[in-house]
Amino acid sequence: KRPMNAFMVWAKDERRKILQAFPDMHNSNISKILGSRWKSMSNQEKQPYYEEQARLSKIHLEKYPNYK
């Protein structure tokens, strides 16, 4: 399994927050909201998630050096 990208790292927690506020919301609607919110974020706001992506990718590479 591939490591999560920056959007997926961010969306994991955000999806949970949306589901708590709107438990009956369909997954497709949540995904649209998440995509819209991510697009509206500045690069500075996204930076911690890109850093986490890099950390996860490094761990993945160490654990699975032959993964293609």
Rank of each mutant, 00 (worst) to 15 (best):
K1F: 08
K1A: 12
K1H: 08
K1C: 09
K1R: 09
R2V: 13
R2D: 15
R2Y: 14
P3N: 15
M4Y: 06
M4P: 12
M4A: 10
M4N: 11
M4T: 12
N5H: 04
N5P: 05
N5G: 07
A6G: 07
A6H: 00
A6L: 00
F7C: 01
F7M: 04
F7Q: 00
M8N: 14
M8C: 12
M8E: 15
M8T: 15
V9I: 15
V9C: 10
W10F: 10
W10I: 00
W10Y: 08
W10M: 00
A11N: 00
A11L: 03
K12W: 04
K12P: 04
K12L: 07
D13Q: 04
D13I: 04
D13K: 09
D13L: 02
E14V: 14
E14R: 05
E14I: 15
E14Y: 08
E14L: 15
E14Q: 07
E14A: 11
R15C: 10
R15H: 05
R15D: 01
R15L: 14
R15V: 10
R15M: 12
R15N: 00
R16Q: 12
R16K: 14
K17P: 00
K17T: 03
K17N: 07
I18L: 12
I18T: 02
I18W: 00
L19Y: 02
L19E: 12
L19M: 11
L19R: 13
L19Q: 12
Q20A: 10
Q20C: 07
Q20N: 12
Q20Y: 03
Q20W: 01
Q20G: 07
Q20P: 04
A21V: 06
A21K: 15
A21R: 12
F22M: 08
F22Q: 13
F22D: 13
P23N: 04
P23V: 02
P23H: 04
P23A: 04
P23G: 02
D24Q: 07
D24H: 07
M25H: 02
M25Y: 01
H26F: 07
H26K: 14
H26V: 09
H26A: 13
N27Y: 11
N27H: 12
S28D: 14
S28N: 11
S28T: 10
S28M: 05
S28W: 10
N29I: 13
N29E: 15
N29Y: 09
N29T: 14
N29W: 11
N29A: 13
I30R: 00
I30V: 12
I30N: 01
S31K: 15
S31Q: 15
S31P: 05
K32W: 05
K32I: 06
K32G: 06
K32N: 06
K32H: 08
K32M: 07
I33S: 02
I33C: 02
L34N: 01
L34A: 00
L34I: 04
L34D: 02
G35Y: 13
G35W: 15
G35E: 14
G35I: 11
G35C: 11
G35R: 09
W38I: 00
W38D: 00
W38S: 01
K39L: 04
K39E: 03
K39A: 10
K39C: 03
S40P: 04
S40Q: 10
S40V: 08
S40Y: 01
S40M: 06
S40D: 10
S40C: 10
M41C: 05
M41D: 02
M41T: 01
S42R: 03
S42W: 01
S42H: 05
S42P: 03
S42Q: 05
S42T: 11
S42E: 04
N43I: 09
N43C: 08
N43K: 15
N43Q: 13
N43A: 13
Q44G: 08
Q44M: 13
Q44C: 06
E45D: 11
E45K: 02
E45S: 03
E45I: 02
K46A: 00
K46R: 06
K46E: 01
Q47H: 06
Q47A: 10
Q47S: 09
Q47W: 05
Q47G: 06
Q47M: 10
P48Y: 07
P48G: 06
P48H: 04
Y49I: 03
Y50H: 04
Y50Q: 07
Y50M: 07
Y50P: 02
Y50L: 08
E52A: 08
E52F: 01
Q53E: 15
Q53R: 06
Q53P: 03
Q53Y: 14
Q53C: 15
Q53K: 04
A54C: 05
A54L: 06
A54M: 08
A54T: 09
R55D: 08
R55Y: 05
R55H: 06
R55E: 06
R55V: 06
R55I: 04
R55L: 03
L56P: 10
L56R: 07
L56T: 10
L56K: 08
S57K: 06
S57A: 14
S57P: 04
K58T: 12
K58N: 10
K58G: 11
I59P: 10
I59F: 09
I59M: 14
H60T: 13
H60E: 13
H60K: 09
H60W: 10
H60I: 05
H60R: 08
L61G: 13
E62T: 08
E62M: 06
E62Q: 07
E62S: 10
E62K: 09
E62W: 01
K63S: 12
K63I: 08
K63R: 09
Y64F: 12
Y64R: 13
Y64D: 15
Y64M: 14
Y64C: 13
P65N: 13
P65T: 09
P65M: 10
N66K: 05
N66H: 10
Y67N: 15
Y67V: 15
Y67G: 14
K68M: 09
K68Q: 11
K68R: 07
